[in-house]
C-alpha cells in the first residue's frame, strides 16, 4: 500500500512538472520499463486531463457586474496603508514610552539610600564550596550535548530542505 502511494505521489509530481531533472528521467525510465508504472501513469494522466477539461466554472447572475459597479460607485480606493502610517508618529510613541521607562528607573534609583549598609552582606551559600560536579557530571553534559546535536541536525535539515527546493526550482 505504501509503495503504491509512493508510486502515485511520484507520478503526480512528474505529471505536475514538480520533479527535478534527475527524478524526471528516473520516472521516465520506470514508465518505459515497468508495465505497472506505465498503467498507473496512463490512468493518472487521463484523470488529470479530465480535471483540466471537465471542471465547470459557475456563473453569477447576468446583472452581477452591473451590481458590483453600482456598489463601487459609492466607494473610493482607500489610501495605501503605508501612506497613512506616519513613521514620525510611531517614533514619537516609542520615544514617549522610552522616556517614561528611563524616568521611572532614574526616580527609583534616586530613592535608594546608599548610606545604609546591607543587613546581611553574606551570601546564603558559600560560593567556593559549591560542588559543581553534582550538576555538571557526565550525564548532564551528555544530555546537553545530545539536545544540542539534535537541534543542530534539525536546523541543518531545514536548511538543506530549503536548498533542495531552490535547486528544484532552478532545474525546472
Amino acid at each position: 500500500m505504501n509503495a503504491h502511494n509512493n508510486m502515485e505521489t511520484q507520478l503526480w509530481e512528474y505529471i505536475d512538472g514538480l520533479s527535478g531533472a534527475d527524478e524526471r528521467s528516473f520516472i521516465e525510465g520506470l514508465i518505459a520499463a515497468d508495465a505497472e508504472w506505465r498503467k498507473k501513469y496512463e490512468e493518472l494522466l487521463s484523470f488529470n486531463a479530465a480535471l483540466h477539461q471537465d471542471i465547470e466554472i459557475d456563473q453569477p447572475s447576468m446583472r452581477f457586474t452591473r451590481n458590483v459597479m453600482e456598489e463601487i460607485g459609492r466607494h473610493q480606493i482607500a489610501p495605501a496603508t503605508g501612506s497613512y502610517i506616519n513613521k514620525k508618529i510611531i517614533y514619537g510613541i516609542a520615544g514617549f514610552f522610552l522616556t517614561l521607562i528611563v524616568g521611572f528607573l532614574i526616580y527609583a534609583i534616586g530613592q535608594i539610600d546608599w548610606s545604609v549598609a546591607p543587613v546581611n552582606n553574606t551570601l546564603p551559600f558559600n560560593l567556593p564550596k559549591i560542588d559543581t560536579s553534582k550538576v555538571f557530571n557526565n550525564n548532564y553534559v551528555n544530555a546537553f550535548m545530545i539536545v544540542n546535536t539534535v537541534l543542530g541536525l534539525m536546523l541543518l535539515d531545514r536548511y538543506l530542505a530549503q536548498q533542495r527546493k531552490h535547486w528544484k526550482k532552478e532545474d525546472a
Binding site: P60, V68, E71, I72, H75, Q76, I77, A78
Partner: peptide
C-alpha cells in the same frame, strides 16, 4: 447561490477599496 453572489460582490468591493495596497 444568493449568499455566494452577495459574498462575491463583497469580494470585488473589498478588492476595489484595497487596490491602493
Amino acid at each position: 447561490r444568493e449568499d455566494a453572489e452577495e459574498v462575491a460582490q463583497d469580494v470585488f468591493v473589498k478588492a476595489y477599496r484595497s487596490l491602493g495596497d
